[in-house]
Write a protein that binds this DNA or RNA. Structure first.
Length: 566
RNA sequence: UGGGGCGUAGCCAAGUGGUAAGGCAGCGGCCUUUGGAGCCGCCACUCGUAGGUUCGAAUCCUGCCGCCCCAGCCA
């Protein structure tokens, strides 16, 4: 939609600084030198799990960079391991990318699209004497590989004739051999200091049904063999991957050079780490399988589907990707950065609404019985175009339990015996009495009087009062449930073998009996609101008409909580 | 003891030989009918460290230190 290289990053500054990072520098050089004429990237997920915020960084990088350079980005599923992959994942991945706002148009590909071509390429290598069929089993291959400090040893099958290799490879494909009995290996250098170059396996025998090719194949290409050649076939110019593949780059290059096919450039960047969560697919899977969370889209999960259900916006995630930048240094981003991106987006777009999570009844003694006033409330002070709405006010209200204290500390601006407070959009009230449950001693009801002259907007309403609190009319209020989410882990870095011990037992608090303003009865799944003074909430997909359920997306910044803490 | 990378503030991150951007967090203050939002100010005499080159070094050179990745028929 916009011109290139200058799309909004720091929206609040009104600036649109050009994004700079080492990848763009490389691209600039490549374009300038004529190495490539366009920018063509790809996002290559393996469909073996749900996408998470770390993938979002990569998606924004790949799609975003291509777009800024007026190039394109493919979506390619790296589906070379049928044992771990599933269509459930290919569907969720597409949904997540689309939701983020990126479009691969007609460029949806699968590594499995290229199985035949890859097989032909392998034959070429065999004919060049650059690949061979090995009869060593997995354990023997490991033993021949050597160690980090010692060179490996050649396989006794390394020098088979081209004819024999061709024959054996063909028969591997035909299914003549059992799983694990043979592999096709690149013939490179068993003494290379780079272990990836010690005759890496290109194909393994796997009699497994693939989610797309079914039983057509019983040999499957390894990542190193499939990935670069797939990039080449698609004409990818810049193949952006994470740091752990840096060691694989010589192999990546070796294959395309041996084949003399289009040569993409692999560039590695540091993967995203976030505090107070885990990011590895293995651990996320474990959280799901062991029921520590309700599923992949549990609002506490760092998955894209979890963030979506939690109430995150695509814009907030893209803003996050811009803010954290791209580099090669291992890093851990403080989750507050993500939360700030969210707040900054939601602040501008979420409708304000009043909701009382922990209600306590408040009776205005001098307010006429049966009277109802429709008061005008602003939908979003940050955006006048969002207009206003009417909310009912009456004699009996609910206010937040936290907004009253019998013995308030200093700097407590809310309601307490004898104190005045403003009811947002309504009147200034004074607390005249407290009714307690005779048995428990809990506060059952608060009594107040209102200053009839202080209706919102009137001159007398200008009077300074320390605090303003939110409320909801008891007879008009709608019941709701709030799911109050907190961070999944108690520690910034839940690492190590006992990472599950730092799971936060209070990461979900279900609050029932909330009272929300009547207009919310019509809220639809995924609608986002700011509950004034509390935080941003969205309607959960479990919500039903008559049984409203809200997820707390994120709290508002709360300086009182900060003062209180200490 | 092999190979590949990375070290700029509590956390990210610009910077590419001319005298340390920006964001988050934190801390002060202003303003406020959300203790929200907004606004203002503070927060690296120094860039892992020790030398060297230079009029001048985070940027160039050398040594040292620290951290990450690699020994799947996973990706």
């Amino acid at each position: 939609m916009e011109d290139n290289k200058s799309q909004g990053t720091e929206q609040e500054t009104g600036q649109t600084p050009e994004k700079r990072n080492f990848i763009r520098e490389i691209i600039d050089e490549d374009l300038k030198s004529g190495k490539y004429e366009t920018v063509h990237t790809r996002f290559p997920p393996e469909p073996n799990g749900y996408l998470h915020i770390g993938h979002a960084k990569s998606i924004c990088l790949n799609f975003g960079t291509a777009k800024d350079y007026k190039g394109v980005c493919n979506l390619r599923f790296d589906d070379t391991n049928p044992a771990k992959e599933d269509v459930e994942y290919v569907e969720s991945i597409q949904e997540d990318i689309t939701w983020l706002g990126f479009d691969w148009e007609n460029r949806l590909f699968y590594a499995s699209d290229y199985f035949e071509k890859l097989f032909e390429y392998a034959v070429i290598l065999i004919k060049k004497g650059k690949a061979y069929v090995d009869d060593l089993d997995a354990d023997e291959i490991r033993q021949h590989r050597g160690t980090l400090t010692e060179p490996g040893k050649d396989s006794p099958y390394r020098n088979r004739s081209v004819e024999e290799n061709l024959d054996l490879f063909e028969r591997m494909r035909k299914g003549e051999f059992p799983d694990g009995s043979k592999t096709l290996r690149a013939k490179i250098d068993m003494s290379s200091p780079n272990i990836n170059m010690r005759d890496p396996v290109m194909y393994r025998i796997l009699h497994a049904t693939h989610h797309r090719t079914g039983d057509k194949w019983c040999i499957y290409p390894m990542y190193d063999w499939a990935h670069g050649q797939s990039d080449s076939i698609e004409g990818i110019t810049h193949s952006i991957c994470t740091l752990e593949f840096e060691d694989h780059r010589p192999l990546y290059n070796w294959f395309v050079e041996q084949l003399q096919i289009f040569h993409p450039r692999q560039i590695e960047f540091a993967r995203l780490n976030l505090t107070y969560t885990v990011m590895s697919k293995r651990r996320l899977l474990q959280l799901v399988q062991e029921k520590h969370v309700s599923g992949w889209d549990d609002p506490r999960m760092p998955t894209i589907s979890g963030l979506r259900r939690r109430g995150y916006t695509p814009e907030s995630i893209k803003l996050f990707a811009d803010r954290i930048g791209v580099s090669k240094a291992d890093s851990v981003i403080d989750v507050s950065v993500l939360e700030d991106c969210l707040r900054s987006d939601l602040n501008k777009r979420a409708q304000r609404v009043m909701a009382v999570l922990h209600p306590v009844k408040l009776v205005i003694e001098n307010y006429p019985e049966g009277q109802v006033e429709e008061l005008e409330a602003v939908n979003n002070p940050e955006d006048e175009s969002m207009g206003t709405r009417k909310i009912p006010f009456s004699k009996v209200l609910y206010i937040e339990r936290d907004d009253f204290m019998e013995n308030p500390p200093k700097k407590y601006f809310r309601l307490s015996p004898g104190a005045e407070v403003r009811l947002r959009y309504a009147y200034i009230i004074k607390c005249t009495g407290v009714v307690k449950d005779p048995k428990t001693g809990d506060i059952a009801e608060l009594h107040c009087t209102y200053d009839t002259e202080t209706k919102s907007g009137s001159p007398a309403s200008q009077r300074k009062v320390k605090g303003t609190i939110h409320w909801v009319s008891a007879q008009h209020a709608v019941d709701a449930e709030a799911r109050v989410y907190d961070r999944l882990f108690n520690v910034p870095d839940p690492g190590g073998d006992n990472w599950k011990e730092s799971l936060n037992p209070a990461s979900l608090e279900v609050v029932k009996g909330c009272k929300v303003e009547p207009g919310l009865a019509a809220a639809k799944v995924q609608d986002r609101f700011q509950f004034e003074r509390l935080g941003y909430y969205c309607v959960d997909r479990d919500s039903q008409p008559g049984n409203l359920i809200f997820n707390r997306t994120v709290t508002l910044r709360d300086t009182w909580a900060k003062i209180n803490k200490g």
